[in-house]
Design a protein around this nucleic acid. Sequence first.
DNA 1: GCCAACGTTGGC
DNA 2: GCCAACGTTGGC
Length: 163
Amino acid sequence: MGKSKTSNASARPRYWLMKSEPSAFSIDDLARASKQTTCWEGVRNYQARNFMRSMAVGDRVLFYHSNADPPAVVGIAEVVRTAYPDPTQFDKADIHYDPDSVPANPRWDLVDIKYIKKFSAPLPLDRLRGEPKLKGMVLLRKGSRLSVQPVTAAEWAHILSLA
DNA sequence: GCCAACGTTGGC
DNA sequence: GCCAACGTTGGC
């Protein structure tokens, strides 16, 4: 490490939001998991995959419950292992099996995340929409379906202040 | 359950 | 390279 290029390093996002349907895997499941850690398998979207590839250990993650009542940010996790191949892409019995992905050049990656905390109360999507400071959030964009998305430092700070 | 928005696939 | 068809996401 020299003393150059700190500006590039600081431009990399350090905050993220990841969606999960609580009926499949909730923040309570994460809190109960072995080592309170899980591998975030099953992402099959290139943009979401690329965001995971750019994550670093220690990055912070908003845990979001989609297809929930109400949909809400429910807590925080952190990245504990950087991207590596998602084993489910090679598992014929798995719902996320991808016959076009070859082990020599895996198409899909995942990261490991660890539970940090559950908010005392969920922050529903409606509530976030009412916050002028969050107007630019990827989550709030019309038609936004991205399951892994960057969060700015300002958005992160504001959401924590609401929680 | 409905359906709008989005991403991917494949014919041409 | 265009675009229609299809499958999926996810709020409502």
